[in-house]
Design a protein around this nucleic acid. Structure first.
Lengths: 336, 336
DNA sequence: GATCGACTCTAGAACGTTCTAGTTGCGTCG
DNA sequence: CGACGCAACTAGAACGTTCTAGAGTCGATC
């Protein structure tokens, strides 16, 4: 194989089939304006010459690019699942996806600017961390849909989970099992930590358990959960609702090492339904986000904006659901 | 914001700055042929008009597309880490990456054909599953680098881990700890399962332990490991080298539930150094692939091919390394 | 004082498509 | 038999770049 040889173009196919370039274009796009006979002949030639349309030239000419840029993070739990859903949704309505990853050494700004140069029609950002002001500036240029976080700026569309509700579900579940002394280990300064914390507080109040409400400083990682667990050991509650699954596993580990039985002595609820939370020996009760729905809505919203529709609801909030597994059980009988 | 308004182009910048389009192009590309004064003025205007180059037009014109297509799987353990490494490597040599994901409902063929339409200069495939014949056909059209699998066809470049060596490491480690009765739970029909199985057999023979060599049918997932564990319970060895971390966690769970102490009664080694294997309460001894090196070499190889270099070694095999954690320990004193 | 070379800049043709505005050929209708 | 409509097709101009070839300008050299 010689690398230098050009790929076959419309012109090649046209010459070979003895028709004009425009006609080949018509056939390739399945547009009206060609007889069945020619259509077939052209397709046959195209197949024989192994013709592949050049999307760059195509998009360059046709202006609007049926192309959605997606920024995702390589380290994040369910971004992969979200990507799956986004591909499904995009394909259903005939859009292409182009991905740009955020890695430990490639920041969000870089990822976004790459997509801008690809001239996508809109951007879908998974859990964007950049300042809202920047998001807003971006949204002045092209439609931007932020997922899994709130954005006050009204140029930016938002599709997110009702995180407050997620903690309602967790607390309700624990209360139903008889728990009263329920602690929340929060996400610290992490995205949507505030919403979840507030959701926890609301739920406790609603159950008349303000007196028990207690928030322990946590974070995103396993160590954060472990640290919170050590803090809890002095005066252990009967149940803990944790910011996310990763932190919950760290917490579980420390608790168990100190001889506490889960769920015998203490119940734990995570958040995210991460793939590892399903592992048999973790088997974590957790709050799952409705990823397919979120993906579908994000794509739909982006496309509406591209088509210039005036969209009524800027923010779409999806209810999560509780996945009950093995780390929650009835509250232990009160001691003393 | 009106979606319809065109983005600013070179022509806009040129008009505003009172120079020709070509000159603006020169300035934007940082090419020689413009005075420092104009350069600065043009850059200022470009910044003010918020000019973003159109990579489609750019690549269309300039023919060769410093663009590498990467196909990765959303479900796979270390594909994320590999992506990180690929971005690093590509950036170092001034190449762009364009990603295409394989999802449960988007197969490899689709992912690849998307990249072909984007006219990438070469393809990097992470653990491709398509038939080698197809890979070869693809490689006749543009440089193809397959990672983490062997491909006999000589048009296709390969960068992979020395999987046989990985199992040598695992077995050597266990033997050093005094184990003799070491079982291998394999990956079934999975990619590179054969290499690892062979590596296990070789290592056992080298240690004069042919008599103990025993391969149990496993697979990729947690359930496969769990199933293998139940099979082992009748006649448990003192150590198990498992095909991958996921399977190993399934195996660990079943063993522990049946009262076996790890590593007291039985040691376990995984493969992949998956993120969850580092979790404190899994703490799995495992074989890690040298991901940064593999990524760097894959990109380097792709670029060599693009530049038309005659590359001597079609296949690059990287040695793995053992990460010792908490699931391996000294062999228990022989019973009876 | 003409010629040269260097530097800075510009005009215009690519690249591979799509799209607009035709031009054919041909059957049908008044 | 001329006008019309329609289907099938084509020529050529876009799209936003890069690239080639060349045009000015200016100081230095012969």
């Amino acid at each position: 194989m010689t690398v230098g040889d050009r790929r076959t173009t419309l012109a090649d196919v046209a010459a070979e089939a003895g028709v004009s370039v425009a006609l080949v274009s018509i056939v390739m796009r399945d547009a009206p304006g060609a007889s069945a006979a020619t259509r077939e002949r052209v397709l046959e030639v195209a197949r024989r010459l192994d013709y592949q349309p050049d999307s760059r030239a195509r998009l360059l000419r046709s202006g609007q690019s049926r192309l959605l840029g997606v920024v995702f993070g390589v380290q994040h739990p369910f971004h992969d699942d979200l990507l799956t859903g986004l591909y499904d949704a995009a394909e259903r309505i005939g859009y292409e996806l182009t991905l740009s990853a955020v890695t430990p050494r490639r920041d969000e700004r870089t990822a976004i600017s790459g997509l801008l140069q690809d001239r996508c029609a809109a951007l879908v950002l998974l859990g964007p961390q950049i300042p809202t002001a920047e998001l807003a500036a971006l949204a002045d240029r092209l439609p931007v849909v932020a997922m899994m976080r709130t954005v006050r700026q009204r140029q930016v569309d938002v599709v997110r989970t009702d995180d407050a509700r997620g903690l309602h579900l967790a607390v309700d579940h624990l209360v139903e099992l008889g728990h009263r002394n329920i602690v929340h280990v929060d996400g610290g300064r992490w995205l949507s930590s505030a919403e979840r914390r507030q959701g926890y507080r609301d739920a406790m109040r609603r159950h008349g358990l303000e007196a028990y409400a207690r928030v322990v400083n946590g974070g995103f990682g396993e160590e954060d959960g472990a640290r919170a667990a050590r803090e809890l050991l002095d005066d252990p509650p009967t149940a803990v609702a944790v910011f996310n699954d990763l932190s919950a596993t760290g917490l579980l580990d420390v608790l168990r090492r100190h001889g506490l039985e889960v769920p015998g002595d203490l119940s734990v609820v995570g958040y995210d339904d991460s793939s590892f939370s399903r592992l048999a020996h973790i088997d974590l009760t957790t709050v799952a986000q409705d990823i397919p729905t979120m993906a579908t809505l994000a794509v739909a919203r982006a496309v509406e904006r591209i088509d210039g529709a005036q969209v009524a609801h800027r923010e779409v909030v999806i209810p999560p659901r509780l996945v009950v597994r093995g780390t929650t059980g009835p509250a232990p009988a009160p001691a003393t």
